[in-house]
């Protein structure tokens, strides 16, 4: 299980996923242009692999206005 924290939505969820971040983002209604991803407290590139036991934070790119 991957633990995902959506910072804008203030939501936490566990997701069954093994693969690259860029392939996970669309499942969360984000894309590489609209999210900054922090894996286990370190920002990572979109090709980073995630899997069991990882914790992700999703920072929305758009805010303010």
């Amino acid at each position: 299980m991957v633990k995902v924290k959506l910072l804008r939505e203030k939501k936490e969820m566990d997701i069954q996923f093994i693969g690259k971040i860029k392939d996970l983002l669309p499942q969360l209604s984000y894309s590489i242009e609209t999210a900054v991803v922090i894996k286990n407290d370190v920002p990572v590139e979109e090709d980073e692999e995630v899997g069991d036991g990882d914790e992700l934070k999703i920072l929305p790119v758009v805010s303010g206005g």
Binding site: T34, V36, I38, P43, L59, P60, V61, V62, G64, G65
Partner: peptide, 21 residues
């Protein structure tokens, strides 16, 4: 780019409001 600003804020520990107007 906006994405780089978000990442920069995170890396520099700049606390900001995530809300949208």
């Amino acid at each position: 780019p906006e994405k780089e600003i978000v990442l920069y804020a995170y890396l520099m520990n700049i606390d900001f409001d995530f809300e949208e107007c």
